[in-house]
């Protein structure tokens, strides 16, 4: 893919409600690279929660709206490997044999995960203006295994001159969120999240960064409850802060 003139930004429902700053930072980063960013106001959710719970009709109903809203030719940027994975990999399956199959395939083919776009398509240069900091990175399972874009996140962070990256123990392992899994099997989910939060704490970093807010909601919430000192931040927000004087905290 070559650098496009404009893109559609799909913010995801989680970022929309729980961390809009990350979405905004993501859009600003892309805009700063000279690309027009459109945010379709009709967008809601990719439909993954229902799809993973086995409610395909309900998932289709919601996904169909996104097909309408995201019509066009521009790349669709998604600041979450999980949601991007749903759209890229599962939309074709979800709409297989329905009248929407063709446009589901078209939309799926245009979906690009945010870090992947910055790293691979824009080859973005990041001028780190922040003070030296050690940061742990968490890769979501979708980034690692479904879309294979975990390396992109790492590569972006490595471009920040004053940031040193730390990999927590058992980094390859899932944080235990898993959408409805956290609700249906809370004991196992909590045990996984507890181990993950503790592994990050053991690195003694002040900050955990990820390209998926779902994981960070899980790990961060667990860490806070457990009294660990580190904070969590979406990578889009982190990259933006490190490279913009005005927004630096």
């Amino acid at each position: 893919m070559t650098k496009p003139e404009s893109i559609l930004f799909f913010g995801t429902c989680l970022i929309d409600m729980a961390n809009p700053e990350a979405g905004l930072a993501g859009m600003r980063l892309i805009e700063r690279a000279g690309i027009r960013v459109r945010f379709p106001q009709g967008q809601t959710c990719c439909g993954q929660p229902a799809y993973n719970a086995g409610y395909r009709e309900e998932a289709r109903r919601v996904a169909r709206l996104q097909l309408d809203v995201l019509a066009g030719d521009e790349p669709i940027l998604v600041p979450s490997a999980s949601c991007a994975g749903m759209m890229r990999t599962h939309y074709p399956r979800l709409f297989e044999g329905t009248p929407d199959a063709a446009r589901a395939g078209q939309v799926a083919g245009r979906v690009v995960e945010f870090c992947d776009f910055l790293h691979r398509v824009l080859r973005i240069e990041l001028n780190d203006l922040g003070p030296p900091i050690r940061v742990a990175v968490h890769h979501s399972c979708s980034a690692r295994r479904q879309l294979l874009v975990a390396d992109a996140a790492t590569a972006l962070l490595r471009r920040l001159a004053n940031v040193s990256l730390v990999e927590p123990d058992h980094a390859h392992e899932c944080c235990g969120f898993g959408g409805t899994f956290a609700i249906k099997e809370p004991e196992i989910s909590s045990a996984m999240a507890g181990d993950k939060a503790a592994a990050v704490a053991a690195t003694e970093v002040p900050l955990l960064v990820s390209q998926d807010w779902g994981c960070l909601l899980n790990i961060g919430g667990t860490a806070k409850q457990a009294g660990y000192a580190y904070r969590v931040k979406h990578i889009a927000e982190f990259l933006w802060e490190r490279t913009e004087v005005a927004h630096e905290k």
Partner: peptide, 22 residues
């Protein structure tokens, strides 16, 4: 319900990305 047994409650933004984007 079970989420918050071992996790701090998630922060809900005052304004959604939809509003901020606009």
């Amino acid at each position: 319900g079970p989420w918050t047994r071992t996790r701090a409650a998630p922060r809900i933004a005052a304004r959604s990305l939809h509003v901020l984007a606009q």
